[in-house]
Design a protein around this nucleic acid. Structure first.
Length: 720
DNA sequence: TGGTCGCCAATTTTT
DNA sequence: TTGGCGACCA
């Protein structure tokens, strides 16, 4: 059993993958440990220099020891942002601030864990004492809302819906309202949830959000407004909160005239990482928490804001000095990560931005090779090129885990995954399909939720449809019979409720029901999950052809439950907020001796770094995505996304432009199917990438590379 | 005829 | 994996 830094077991991830069927020798996915340059700095700082503050540069030191009042730390990529924040927590603690009175909000739980661990190492707090309250906005919100559940009119063990569950609830209402069959196409569940979530997180009227981001839905505005009202009512009725509700409820607590001041007084210091990615709702929470007490530290880089599609906006960090007029601002500009040529290229890209805090990253590593811009014949040539370079670098002594392949979408690496498998190069991938999104995992979770709450219609709906010959209509009929039963024991009405089932499905259904019944008195999550998994297994086997791999995934969940000390409700709740196999949870080196290449989406690579970085598929329409071509803001965000990708590299940076692509029929105005190099690769950047290699070989596939170069010249026009 | 099931196409990024 | 469409079953 592998554990994370908190000692919790980690599930090693999916064994199912869309490409799996074609590649039998695919390596098991494991989580790599991120490369931490600052970690090394600190190890020496702690062991060799007791006054660890001396290892910081003057700006970092000023930030770490800032006394009193709001502080904005603008930390460019690779400038020791995490180092500084850790040092600040350590400094506060060494100054006598009680750790429990420090709140540390980070973007991922991994970041929180790492920081707390580093901090402990710095000031030698005994393990267990450093109870800094740390985590994501959502997980901290969960804690507060649970604490004040009754004040909020919630049952003590309210459930938390993940995004998939929320979409299912919306879909159910959508059907009840009769939108499923209406002739005018109605937005589907994921669009609706997206729209709802954006509206809530941005704290702006629905009409505005629709007009701005979903103009094609405008005709349905009133209907959708009614649907969303029904959605919130339904959540109340079901006694559940979705992820957005956690924030909404936290804000309600923070602004409450009784609880708000208490909550504010409970924390001497609030520190927030990645402030460029907060949304309007989160800002309101922060302002409520620091209305009177003003000790607040926020750290971020407006040029690395890449979550606009989740209602985050770099405007919030830009406006921090307005919200907190007495704020001090410290800018970190010494980059310790990348070589000068890489930094110069990234700076050239940043210079194209329309709005940003001025920053001039200075580089400590002068020497280094130029970034490479590589034109490839097509996406499979791109895959081959990447493999060649990766192996070449390994020959020269660079471990695979020191290299990473980053892409705009997780799907960009499909061909590469096949090629890596063919060449037997081990790799791990994160981003992409996540553990909790796999159908069979959702099946088991639905059953677990039923064990906890027999009134959970969504879960009933899902579980019933696992039975052979049972679809939405039959499931609905059974459900109606169950729901009419008294709240306390819905299972009591099972003998009647099972009537609508086809005869051959009744036996298997009974087996599941008795498992639910048998485990009712079991307190610990482990035995319950195991028993329920056993009951579900036959249905999984009957339903999915590749059941062995899927059952293996479920076994991981059982193993995790066995290690869990709490009850089932707790276990499921934590699973939703801290899902395994998410990029947020890359903890603990699983096998020190293993070496593997890292594949990741750029979003998931945030905060990480590697010696060599390969960025795939930089052609117009993909990166920047055509979905983002609509507004200046979203194109700016695409640019920042590329900036984030480029600044992950320490020594080598490779950018790939496949010239011809196959998977995007009628996607653009280009009927010939040639990719145009990304609109971000203007001449300015290209000149800095002085090694331009073409990799075309004689081929039946056709067009010679010069066509691509011609297109390159015309890229600038796309900015207009 | 209502309902299930099989087949095909398409899919941005995630707490 | 989801959604849409058409075939087939009670």
């Amino acid at each position: 059993m592998i554990r994370n830094l908190n000692g919790h077991p980690i599930i090693i991830g999916l064994t199912i993958h869309p490409l799996e069927r074609r590649s039998a020798t695919r390596p098991e996915r494991i989580r790599p440990r991120p490369c931490l340059a600052w970690e090394r700095m600190f190890v020496s700082a702690v062991t060799e220099a007791p006054q660890w503050l001396e290892s910081l540069n003057p700006e970092q030191c000023a930030a770490a020891t800032h006394a009193g009042g709001p502080l904005l730390v603008l930390a460019g990529a690779g400038t020791g942002k995490t180092t500084t924040l850790c040092a600040r927590v350590a400094w506060l603690a060494s100054e006598g601030v009680v750790p429990e009175r420090i709140m540390l909000l980070t973007f991922t739980r991994r970041a929180a864990r790492e920081m707390l661990q580093r901090t402990r190492a710095l000031i030698q707090m005994p393990v267990g004492s450093g109870a800094v309250l740390g985590g994501t906005f959502h997980s901290v919100a969960h804690r507060f809302v649970r604490l004040h559940a009754s004040a909020l009119g919630l049952a003590p063990g309210f459930g938390v819906l993940d995004a998939g569950d929320a979409a299912d609830v919306i879909d159910m209402i959508r059907e009840e309202h009769g939108h499923a069959q209406s002739k005018a196409r109605f937005p589907k569940k994921s669009t609706l949830l997206d729209l709802y979530s954006r509206t809530v997180n941005a704290q702006r009227p629905l009409a505005d959000v629709v007009t701005e981001s979903f103009p094609w839905c405008e005709q349905h505005l009133e209907t959708m407004a009614a649907l969303f009202k029904a959605y919130t009512a339904r959540k109340r009725k079901l006694g559940v909160l979705d992820l957005d509700d956690l924030l909404v409820y936290w804000r309600a607590l923070a602004t409450d005239e009784l609880i708000g001041p208490q909550m504010q007084d409970a924390f001497d210091h609030v520190l927030i990482d990645e402030y460029q990615d907060v949304n309007g709702l989160q800002v309101e929470i922060v302002r409520a928490l620091r209305r009177e007490r003003r000790d607040l530290t926020v750290v971020g880089d407006d040029f690395q804001a890449i979550y606009g599609w989740r209602s985050a906006s770099p405007e919030h960090i830009l406006q921090f000095p307005t919200h907190f007029p007495e704020a001090s601002v410290i800018t970190l500009e010494h980059n310790y990560r990348s070589t000068q040529p890489i930094l110069a290229t990234a700076n050239a890209l940043a210079a194209q931005a329309s709005r940003a805090f001025p920053k001039h990253l200075r580089c400590e590593l002068k020497a280094g090779s130029q970034p490479e811009l590589i034109f490839c014949r097509d996406e499979s040539a791109q895959a081959a090129e990447v493999c060649d370079r990766v192996l070449e670098a390994r020959e020269r002594g660079m471990q695979l885990r020191e290299q990473a392949v980053l892409s705009r979408t997780s799907h960009d690496t499909d061909l590469l995954e096949l090629e890596l498998t063919r060449r037997r190069i081990p790799f791990v991938k994160y981003g992409g399909l996540r553990y909790l999104e796999a159908a069979h995992v959702k099946d088991l979770i639905a059953l677990l939720k039923l064990a906890d709450n027999q009134g959970d219609e969504i879960s009933w709906f899902r579980v019933l449809q696992l039975l052979e010959g049972v679809g939405p209509a039959t499931a609905r009929r059974v459900l109606d019979l169950l729901v009419t039963a008294p709240q306390t024991d819905r299972l009591a009405s099972w003998p009647t409720a099972r009537e609508p089932l086809p005869a051959h499905a009744r036996g298997p259904a009974d087996a599941v029901i008795s498992a639910l019944r048998d485990t009712r008195d079991e307190r610990l999550a482990g035995p319950r999950v195991e028993r329920l998994r056993d009951a579900l297994a036959p249905l999984i086997e009957a339903r999915y052809p590749d059941c062995a791999a899927r059952l293996h995934d479920l076994e991981q969940l059982v193993a995790a439950a066995r290690e869990h000390s709490g009850d089932l409700r707790h276990f499921v709740g934590e699973l939703v907020l801290d899902p395994p196999q998410s990029s947020a949870d890359l903890a603990g080196p699983p096998h020190r001796d293993e070496d593997y290449l890292v594949l990741s989406t750029i979003h998931s690579a945030k905060g990480l770094e590697w010696q060599a970085v390969h960025v795939l598929a930089l052609y117009d329409g993909n990166f920047p995505a055509c979905m983002s071509a609509g507004s200046k803001e979203s194109v700016d965000e695409e640019r920042r996304l590329l900036y984030v990708a480029m600044t992950r590299a320490r020594r080598q940076l490779h950018l790939y432009v496949p010239v011809r692509y196959y998977h995007r029929p009628n996607g653009t105005d280009d009927a010939h199917g040639y990719g145009k190099p990304s609109r971000f690769l203007t001449e300015q950047v290209q000149q800095l990438c002085d090694v331009i290699r073409s990799s075309d070989q004689p081929s039946h596939l056709g067009p010679p590379t010069p066509t691509a170069r011609l297109i390159t010249v015309s890229v600038d026009g796309l900015f207009d």
